[in-house]
């Protein structure tokens, strides 16, 4: 039974990491890149504004960072809960 409890704890920790990552994912693309762009209009980046930069460059860079963060964090979590592949 304790293994089941630990698996549940592992799963909820995973879901929490996914949710945090998806909030950032949505913030940089749908947020900064589209909906919140007018609010960032004051910050200029080389002939355009920060929202334009996020839509065409920044969001992609953040996506990359997110995937590598998730892979690293989950490998650590796998070991902590003893569910990693031997």
């Amino acid at each position: 039974m304790s293994q089941d409890n630990d698996n549940n704890a592992y799963w909820s920790a995973n879901v929490r990491i996914i949710l945090i990552s998806l909030v950032i994912w949505a913030l940089v693309s749908f947020g900064f890149g589209i909906v919140l762009r007018p609010m960032l209009a004051g910050i200029s980046v080389g002939g355009a504004d920060l929202g334009f930069w996020f839509a065409q460059q920044g969001s992609i860079l953040v996506f990359l960072a997110l995937i590598f963060f998730y892979a690293w964090r989950m490998n650590k979590l796998d070991r902590e809960h003893g569910v990693d592949e031997e």
Partner: peptide, 16 residues
């Protein structure tokens, strides 16, 4: 810009 964000952002969903 949707093409740029859409066709890369999908990989986050795929990975997670």
């Amino acid at each position: 810009s949707s093409f740029l964000m859409g066709w890369t952002g999908g990989y986050v969903l795929l990975a997670l």
